[in-house]
Design a protein around this nucleic acid. Structure first.
Lengths: 216, 216
DNA sequence: GGAATAGTGTCTATGAGACAGTATGAA
DNA sequence: TTCATACTGTCTCATAGACACTATTCC
């Protein structure tokens, strides 16, 4: 068998300055050394249980982040996508709140998904695919919760859905649906700001990957 | 790098005796020689453009079928799924009408998805994943059309949706939605049987992978 | 004409959207 | 008291579901 290059790449989403961003970091090695790219690298069969473990390891070793929401996205493959030869990249996507990104000594950068630089390999296509998946799945799942801190207000959650979906939602309708779908529970405390404080909620533990028939 | 085994596997669905079946065939080589398994095998980097091409080649060489609906399903990987070692299988699923299965000299078998034998590797899990995807996606896409011949009646289409989704649909509602979604076009001729003939329809060429917000 | 299936029309209840209203804390 | 935001109530209109009705063929 001709050897095939096996890698994983991770599209790590976060909300930054009210817009969807992805984490990019400069590549350490050739090809495309120093260029900004998705966190990723070779699968290590001795070390990794499977490609999910490899993705987790990659994320942790390159950005210091442990175990946010992480899901397989799609597998990209072929002769031309990597100059080193025939390759397979199992792509994953992850969601995290900005507060859980390490603050110091990390070389990663946040880039708005609608203003990405040109990336090596087929990484632009991978990000596009991830955006589409995130948007599609957000219409019928609890995904956007993972972009928020562990406790959040209903207004924050609504804004997050709106940002991802690119549409305005009616407050009353949104809350009625949340009530029906019943994937949130009250958290302790309230968000106190300049005005009336808002109740905090958290995603129910058994609903971290919940999907529903209806649409948000 | 430790060498990694790279394969593709294909879950080929068809309706047979009014039930959802998958194509299985006896493995030619070890491990598990002679045992029934999904059509699949090694990716050939010299020959295959990418894993999709590999899946097409596999399907054609093992079953004689060319190019039905074929879509990537999920990538299964790890140390334990294949006794030969650390492996990656990029799984695809395909839909085809029984009439397009070759009639003679093929060694494949049709097995009802709800009465599968025990399969080698993690093939049972792969079929399960494919069933779930097929069911989920059928609620908001034209997928079931690919299980029918190129021209079909609305009643046949409705029965197909019902079989896959496992629910009864109201004829009037179903047709109203078909009308709204507008992914069918009239085909020449009618299905003439024991009673009033039914108009034939076909999937519009630009809708072979159409999805919609609403639900069937 | 009867049986069976194709295809259409209509009533109703549900629920989404729009929007106005009330509640509560900060200044 | 005012302002801004949290939160809730209500009206209306669209539509999914239920089901009855008409149409067309074979016998």
């Amino acid at each position: 068998m001709t050897p095939v290059i096996l890698t994983v790449d991770v599209v790590l989403f976060t909300l930054h300055q009210d817009n969807l961003h992805v984490v990019l970091l400069p590549r350490e090695h050739n090809p495309y050394a120093q260029q900004l790219a998705l966190p990723g690298g070779y699968v290590h069969p001795e070390e990794d249980q499977d490609t999910l473990s490899a993705a987790r390891r990659m994320l942790h070793s390159k950005t210091g982040i442990v175990s946010p929401y992480l899901e397989q996205l799609y597998t990209f493959s072929g002769r031309v996508r990597d100059p080193r030869g025939w390759s397979v990249s199992v792509a994953y996507y992850a969601l995290i709140h900005q507060s859980r990104l390490p603050q110091e000594h990390q070389r990663f950068e946040l880039h708005a998904v609608d203003a990405l630089p040109e990336l090596p390999f087929d990484h632009n296509r991978i990000v596009q695919t991830a955006c589409k998946r995130l948007r599609d799945k957000s219409t019928y799942s609890t995904l956007p919760c993972h972009l928020l801190p562990s406790a959040f207000t209903l207004a924050e959650l609504q804004q997050t859905y709106e940002k991802i979906l690119g549409t305005r939602l009616d407050k009353s309708v949104f809350r009625r649906k949340l009530n029906d779908l019943d994937f949130l529970e009250e958290a302790e405390g309230q968000r106190t700001g300049a005005h009336r404080p808002a109740q905090l909620y958290r995603l129910r533990a058994d609903c971290s990957d919940a999907t529903f028939g209806k649409t948000m």
